[in-house]
Design a protein around this nucleic acid. Structure first.
Lengths: 328, 328
DNA sequence: ACATAGAATTGAAACGTTTCGAATTGCTGT
DNA sequence: ACAGCAATTCGAAACGTTTCAATTCTATGT
């Protein structure tokens, strides 16, 4: 691999001159310029990005950490982020938090990027607060967290869940089961709280019997329903903490010959792309994923610019009524 | 930001000793070890990853370039790759090729990773061949490309398309339109070739009239159908170069009151997750995305190990017959 | 011809690590 | 008491850039 030194030697000039030339500095004579380019081309010189980053303080890169890079659900989010980052002339690199706190934690700590956007509940809040710096701001999307250089963009889970719960209740359902996400997830906690609030404001009770763990996965939703069915206790409706679980649940119900929504209603949360294509189409609470990404990235850049007025943001959800909840 | 120098000063030892300690070198006395850790903790020292990478030849990172990070369709692929990379103790960072050849091209050239997996038709083959090095192997997934340190893992597009085409023909369709992807896409070219072959082997002709550009996007598929409908020329069946276009096409057909498959049949290519959920469920050619990712990553590591026996691989597709093609 | 402004070029430091060979220290055995 | 050795610790080079201050060169005005 040719280095700048090789180019300098071949062109018969100093290293600095090569650097200057390649970086379009004006004070380089046309002939020198030509010589350098020729040498660079001949050697197929490519600057070493790592060395460059070490010297220059900025990497012109924003990092994005997701729990699972392969999640279907981040598309819009990423689009939102990307729109802003490219507009700012920055790159975006994504990495997944899979496999515990190994890699991305390393990445976060070692700051190979100018800032981070994190949507991965398996990354420790403490680690995040600690990693945030003036020159390394962090935006968190899956929990509320605010410290000097860390801010969050979240969704009003509670309100969203409240509305969905209320809708279900208004439609006449009383025995409603909640399909829960992981206990360490703030999203889950807030959604459940909102749901519970709705129930209680209508004089309904939420018993532990109707709080069923589904781990935010399709599998989990599927199993939860099967489990209940095996015990011959089925609610009138399911409120799933996310769409993937709702999907699993509907699959299980269909397999059991239970009709949705005629026999049991289902609502989800997130409004992933698939939601509209399920059978029946899933009623769910829409998260403005694109906006979240867009907002997070925008705020990140404002932080990078030293703007001290940045504050955490809470965005609104929207109830999307489709067919799976029985009402029309 | 505390550097190793600060730690050394605070601990009252040399820089080398700090480095040795922090990297678990055996030859460090317990007391020194303790002093160093204490200082490091006090200063909240975090090694600078960039500096580390510059010195150590390996970055322990594999890069993945996708045309569009937000594509729904890469989930399984990423899982396949990730499985292998994490098993090897490597990190995976993904970046998108959106916005022209700007960022990832830079990344590829500047080699911030130990190797690359590329699935992005908008990255120039020439650039790729040129970037491949012994210490920087590249796997390409969307085209056939083989040079010293570049290999590909592809799918037998031609055969897959042939089978799908044949299935359509066997089912009695004659006037079949092909919804095409971008002209610079090898995938598209091969799929079309396979389809054409199937047609011709049954004595059917493929006229330019039935080759319609859809750009591999849902939008494109939608528009293509609308365009045809406006001219009152509709084929008996559509063969879409990918599922997204098929989805758009079906949407347009439905809007026009044309029933699928009763009036017009549709088949796609890829078998994205959504395919099974479309209405009617989409008949399509399944690409073994997980396997592709897994294979690509495995070969990449073999290349990194200096294995000279690595060759490009072509994987088989599978025709998934659902309802959208009319046959059962 | 000559001082000098300005342009072009260069040398060297700096970025924060790792690593290797050398230097220092403390023991062991005689 | 001291040679010899292993265990520690250290100094300095190296990784490939950028950048700033210093130097050299060229051309200008007097």
């Amino acid at each position: 691999m040719a280095t700048i030194k090789d180019v300098a030697k071949l062109a018969g000039v100093s290293i600095s001159t090569v650097s200057l030339t390649l970086n379009q500095h004006p004070n380089v004579s046309p002939e020198t310029r030509k010589k350098v380019w020729k040498a660079a081309r001949e050697l197929q010189y490519q600057p070493n990005g790592i060395a460059k980053d070490l010297k220059s303080v900025r990497t012109k890169t924003v990092g994005l950490v997701l729990s699972d890079l392969s999640g279907p659900f981040y598309s819009e989010l990423i689009r939102g982020i990307q729109e802003v980052t490219t507009a700012n002339g920055y790159d975006l690199v994504a990495m997944s938090a899979i496999g515990g706190s190994g890699s991305p934690a390393r990445y976060i700590r070692e700051k190979r990027t100018d800032g981070m956007i994190i949507l991965a509940h398996d990354i420790d809040s403490h680690l995040i607060s600690q990693a945030g710096r003036e020159k390394f701001p962090i935006m968190v999307l899956d929990r509320k967290l605010e410290s000097d250089h860390v801010f969050s963009v979240t969704v009003d889970n509670r309100k969203g869940a409240y509305e969905a719960g209320e809708h279900l209740i208004r439609s006449g359902y009383r025995k409603i089961a909640y399909l829960a996400g992981p206990n360490d997830s703030t999203d889950n906690a807030e959604r459940f709280a909102g749901f519970k609030e709705a129930m209680e404001s209508h004089g309904l009770e939420v018993t532990p019997k109707w709080y069923i763990q589904g781990g935010f996965t399709k599998q989990g939703g599927y199993r939860a329903v099967k489990l209940l069915a095996a015990q011959h206790i089925l609610p009138e409706a399911f409120f799933a903490g996310n769409d993937e679980m709702a999907m699993g649940a509907m699959e299980a119900l269909t397999e059991l010959g239970i009709r949705v929504p005629a026999d049991v209603a289902v609502v989800g949360f997130d409004d992933i792309e698939l939601a509209a294509y399920m059978r029946p189409p899933l009623t769910t609470v829409r998260q403005p994923m694109f906006d979240m990404g867009y907002t997070a990235a925008t705020l990140l850049f404002r932080l990078l610019d030293g703007d001290r007025s940045v504050r955490s943001v809470v965005l609104d959800t929207e109830l999307i009524v489709r067919e799976s909840c029985g009402s029309k």
